[in-house]
Design a protein around this nucleic acid. Structure first.
Lengths: 340, 340
DNA sequence: AGAATGTACTAATGCGGTTCAGCTGCGTCA
DNA sequence: TGACGCAGCTGAACCGCATTAGTACATTCT
């Protein structure tokens, strides 16, 4: 900036005014300064900016997962890609960190806050009774919870969520109409807010229809767990005729496991994957899946965060209900008369 | 720091000395200062540190991919996870950005550099004739090229690479021994350094054995491209008896496509995936695959970068050759007498 | 004409650290 | 005993920007 000031023949403050669109300089001078800055390829040092109270121009994103479970998962990369798109427009950086567990994640937030490294954070995989929201509240760090249910207790945080309950109801509707009465939901990690929401909804929907052969089993989202649970429930007495998997990876592994047991999909057992991806069209039969726009999900979350950083109020935003894409893995239950 | 100084009854400079392990304070004072800092939960502001010449304590990582091709890919998440592990030890942040193409990536480097946002960067997907290395050289920004071949022209950059050539030779060895003479390599993006390296090696290996029915076809890594190319080559006259896919996703899609054409794997056609992942064991037949430790790859890269940041010399490090894990998708070529 | 207002700019200050040039008091050695 | 060295500490400058208080000059008002 000193250079620019010298070359433009003005003081440093004038340069600052000119480049930040503040009043106090003539349009002539402003243009001249802008041009010189352009020529010099000048960009403000984020460090200096941050130091003089402008914030770090960075938002944080922590993924709390043991390294080994970071597998085939298109969701996060797409989410991040959407987030980026919005952040990049405003030249906000994304500080990314992978940690082992949620306690580490809290520690990261505290450190980032103390180091003034981020202006806000995006929180994923919200849990029932999540310690992170409390920490963010305590620190006064703006945050957007991605995938959480609306939470009254933390008015400072925004929430962006998909209506899992509605989607689950739609899936049960579809399966019920196809004559399925015994359904097993191979769920994700217990304790995750959306896992619990799906489980609750499934139970409610089953109760509403008087179905007794309906249950949820939680897993760690891994292909191994998906296959293991599939084998177990299919080999039990009164096996389910339909399986709902909480992600695409488990669904795929489940289909493979069922096939190995001599069961065919969808003749013997129908399969629905929660989360559509290329995977679902890479195996035969193509998997029926709940599809949502993860990239847009990320964009929405990032937009909420920038709004928060601009001093806007915390909001709760619902993105569209995931749509059930019916492909080849769902069919009429064996021996049943479909309703439609 | 002012608070710490007051409470410990010393000057601010003394605090700085004490906390940074510099000489100039007694052990007594040092301990006292440390304790007060601990009590106050103090952490240095990265902005202030950066401003006084300490660097940003951050490294950058750019992924240049159109959003839609960010699909099912375990490699990057694992790589990043490994990188993180090393960076976290030193409290280095990872600034992550997704951009559309390599020109944007160069622009991001320039911006980061001008803004003093990062101390160094990790470069992935190196290309033959890559503009990024030149940019980094020009800016004097330390960098580690991940997956690149050693490059003499940029002495300031470290390189961490896997020996694709050796791996490809091993694969051809194996397939040749099984009696395969017509092999098609469904490669990744043309222009990527490792794609070209694999293609060159395959050609050389074929030439060495006098094989004429061997070729490489480049793709965009997508499942769609994998399936399309598979169909095309299998329907041509003198179809290959073995297919080598440059990633797991294409391999899976390829197997599906082959099956649809009525060809069975491995009886009619053998398949090898370059990149082992859960996917390879989620379909029948299990895919033979080249396996490498992506997490460790990331760790190695991050270690090289920290070494560079510490003022160490640029180095070229080779990680272990990917190992061929033989599963069920490779077998004796139809009508051939295997060598072993 | 003199005061009030406004415009275009400059000088000085602070953000939170690091660092360097002193400065003090004490032990050591000639 | 006085010069010297050194450990242990302080004060001030500096990093690059934003911001506030102040200044010089032109314009308008009364």
């Amino acid at each position: 900036m000193k250079d620019i000031a010298r070359r433009a023949g003005v003081s440093q403050s004038a340069v600052s005014f000119a480049l930040n669109g503040r009043p106090g300089v003539s349009e002539d001078t402003r243009d001249r300064v802008r041009q010189v800055a352009e020529e010099l390829g000048w960009r403000p040092s984020t460090a200096a900016r941050a130091l003089s109270g402008e914030g770090a121009a960075t938002v944080g994103f922590v993924l709390a997962r043991p390294a080994e479970t970071l597998g085939v998962d298109s969701f996060f990369l797409q989410l991040v890609s959407g987030i980026q798109e919005v952040l990049a427009e405003r030249h906000l950086g994304l500080l990314f960190q992978v940690v082992e567990d949620i306690e580490d994640e809290c520690a990261v937030y505290r450190r980032w806050w103390a180091e003034h490294r981020v202006d806000g954070v995006l929180v994923v995989d919200p849990r029932t009774d999540d310690p992170r929201t409390g920490v963010l509240d305590e620190l006064g760090l703006p945050g957007v919870v991605i995938g959480g249910a609306p939470d009254e207790r933390h008015p400072g945080l925004s929430t962006v969520w998909a209506d899992d309950a509605g989607a689950m109801a739609a899936v049960v509707d579809e399966l019920y109409a196809l004559g399925h009465r015994r359904i097993v939901h191979i769920a994700g990690l217990p304790g995750l807010a959306h896992t619990e929401r799906r489980i609750r909804t499934l139970r409610a929907e089953a109760g509403r229809r008087g179905l007794t052969g309906v249950k949820s089993v939680t897993t760690d989202y891994s292909d191994a767990a998906g296959a293991a649970v599939t084998r177990r429930v299919l080999e039990a007495s009164a096996p389910p005729t339909a399986l709902i998997y909480d992600n695409d990876v488990m669904a795929l592994a489940g289909v493979a496991a069922a096939t190995e047991l001599g069961q065919s999909v969808p003749a013997d057992v129908s399969v629905v994957a929660w989360e559509d991806s290329a995977l679902c069209r890479m195996v035969k039969p193509w998997l029926s899946a709940l599809s949502r726009d993860s990239v847009e999900f990320g964009r929405t979350a990032a937009r909420e965060l920038t709004a928060l950083l601009d001093g806007g109020p915390a909001r709760t935003v619902r993105v569209p209900v995931p749509r059930l894409i019916v492909r080849d893995s769902t069919g009429v239950a064996r021996g049943a008369q479909p309703l439609r």
